[in-house]
């Protein structure tokens, strides 16, 4: 039997993602790519370059800014957009708050869950029929059944009973006016694949993904980044009375809203070290308790994306 040369797993995942991006471009009339400057969206932007260069992207980029993003990430986002020569739309939660469509219960309330309001307003404003996002099926058990082209009704709602079967690589991204498709080109990637791809493609990431010393507060076992200065100079996550600030060696696995993304302890200061760490950490502390940790870790990621997806 002849065994032919086939694609490596990274090449295959890349080829699949490019195919999905091109289906979005071919089937949808007004798509948009959600771009935060985080690692998953940086992978997608690299994939879009491979899909559409030497042409321009057939869609703009859009970031829904909670107003609580790390300065390093926002700077990185803007630099990357400039390098690519693509168009970035930024819509912020604060605009929705001014309009009165978002009302916070108290100023410190985590803002992630409100992101969807601003996103839906932006979708309506621009008439987008598809949002390309970076969610992955391995992030959380409940996501294991998510489609690559996921259908949202007029209210932006995901109805598990109303999802379209997906067979072969024949995607159905059709929608009526007002409805919306969420397209997930890296659905089949794991966190490990993402890091391996970042390493292979030598992608630059915001610095806070790598191990660094940071002032933190340990609150109920969580690591809370302390006294974080926002782009506008405001300082958030101040210690409550009685809380102590300690210096720890940490890195972020996700870089969503500051108030709900905790870093992890890590010495990994290069992409290769993170690849090794990602491969091993999931198992070294094995056992039932670890399973619970994994769930909460996954739901942390999910919370980050809840607003979007």
């Amino acid at each position: 039997m002849t065994i032919k040369k086939t694609l490596s797993h990274l090449d295959w995942l890349e080829a699949e993602a490019i195919h999905i991006l091109r289906e979005v471009a071919g089937q949808c009339s007004n798509p948009v790519l959600l771009f935060s400057g985080g690692k998953d969206s940086l992978c997608i932007v690299r994939l879009a370059e491979k899909a559409f260069r030497p042409g321009r992207f057939p869609f703009p980029l859009m970031h829904i800014d909670t107003g609580h993003n790390y300065k390093e990430v926002l700077e990185f986002r803007d630099r990357r957009v400039k390098d690519m020569g693509e168009r970035l739309i930024v819509r912020s939660l604060e605009d929705s708050m001014e309009r009165g469509t978002i009302v916070l219960k108290h100023p410190d309330e985590p803002r992630n869950k409100h992101q969807s309001v601003t996103l839906l307003e932006a979708i309506e404003e621009h008439g987008f029929d598809c949002c390309i996002g970076g969610a992955r099926r391995d992030e959380e058990k409940a996501r294991a059944k998510e489609r690559i082209m996921s259908f949202r009704d007029e209210f932006g709602q995901w109805d598990p009973k109303n999802q379209r079967p997906e067979l072969w690589n024949l995607y159905n991204a059709r929608s009526h006016k007002g409805e919306n498709i969420r397209a997930f080109p890296i659905s089949n990637w794991t966190e490990m694949d993402v890091w391996q791809y970042i390493e292979r493609e030598k992608l630059e990431l915001p610095s806070i993904y790598y191990s660094h010393e940071r002032d933190v507060i340990i609150r109920n076992g969580d690591i809370i980044p302390a006294n974080v200065e926002l782009a506008n100079g405001e300082v958030i996550n101040k210690p409550k009375s009685g809380e102590e600030i300690v210096k720890k060696q940490v890195r972020f696995r996700t870089v969503g809203d500051i108030t709900c993304t905790a870093p992890v302890y890590s010495d990994a200061d290069t992409t290769s070290k993170i690849v090794v760490e990602t491969a091993t950490t999931t198992i070294t502390e094995r056992g039932a308790t670890r399973l619970d940790d994994q769930t909460s870790e996954a739901s942390m990621e999910l919370r980050k994306k809840e607003g979007y997806f």
Partner: peptide, 11 residues
């Protein structure tokens, strides 16, 4: 660190 030389991490 053991990095990409590690056979477990190749493509």
């Amino acid at each position: 660190s053991n990095n990409m030389q590690n056979p477990a991490l190749k493509e």
